[in-house]
């Protein structure tokens, strides 16, 4: 955060006010061990599948459903901080663990991986738009797939 504050100050921007939680987090206990649950995945890396619309970089709050059996060759990324995508574009598994979770499902570490995973472009400055637009869309997608526990991977 200090690095980003210093960078913004040099560029002449007002300091960005990060979300600092002042309330305890809500809590939902796992109903059963993960080995018996259907796991959902959210990646904020701006992943999309060839044939889907790419993300734009002006607070794009939309989501994409990415079929869990998508081959790596069809995975694409668009994210406002493209410089962090160099490795993801060569090996998506370092940021979007689709193949890793498929393997952990076959090994029984998780009960199942949801039929689609959810992607968004996490570089949204407006906390209101994340709360009012992205979060409900993620919840709806997870519910429609019977997701019982969710792993959220930040880029």
């Amino acid at each position: 955060m200090e690095m980003i504050r210093a960078r913004y100050a040099r560029l002449g921007y007002a300091p960005y006010r990060w979300f600092e939680a002042n309330t305890p987090p809500p809590w939902q206990a796992l109903p059963r061990p993960l080995a018996e649950l259907r796991l959902g995945l959210l990646s904020t890396s701006g992943a999309y599948v060839r044939g889907q619309r790419a993300y734009h970089y002006r607070d794009d709050s939309s989501v994409r459903a990415i079929p869990s059996d998508t081959p790596d060759a069809d995975l694409r990324f668009s994210h406002i901080t493209e410089n962090y995508l160099v490795d993801a574009r060569r090996d998506p598994a370092c940021i979007l663990p689709l193949g890793t979770l498929r393997l952990l499902a076959t090994r029984g570490v998780i009960g199942a991986l949801a039929r689609s995973v959810v992607s968004c472009m996490g570089g949204v400055y407006s906390q209101r738009r994340v709360r009012d637009e992205t979060a409900p869309a993620v919840l709806e997608t997870f519910r429609s797939q019977g997701v019982e526990a969710a792993l959220l991977v930040a880029m």
């Binding site: 990060w18 979300f19 939680a21 987090p25 809500p26 809590w27 939902q28 206990a29 796992l30 109903p31 959902g40 959210l42 904020t44 890396s45 406002i80 901080t81 968004c120 996490g122 570089g123 949204v124 400055y125 906390q127 994340v130 709360r131 992205t134 979060a135 409900p136 993620v138 919840l139 997870f142 997701v147 019982e148 526990a149 969710a150 792993l151 959220l152 991977v153 930040a154 880029m155």
Partner: peptide
């Protein structure tokens, strides 16, 4: 920014009955 986004979304999911990490 992505880490802020996941924190906000995790709180929303958890309020609505889905445990998160």
């Amino acid at each position: 920014m992505c880490h802020q986004t996941v924190s906000l979304i995790a709180r929303h999911l958890e309020e609505n009955g889905i445990p998160t990490l």
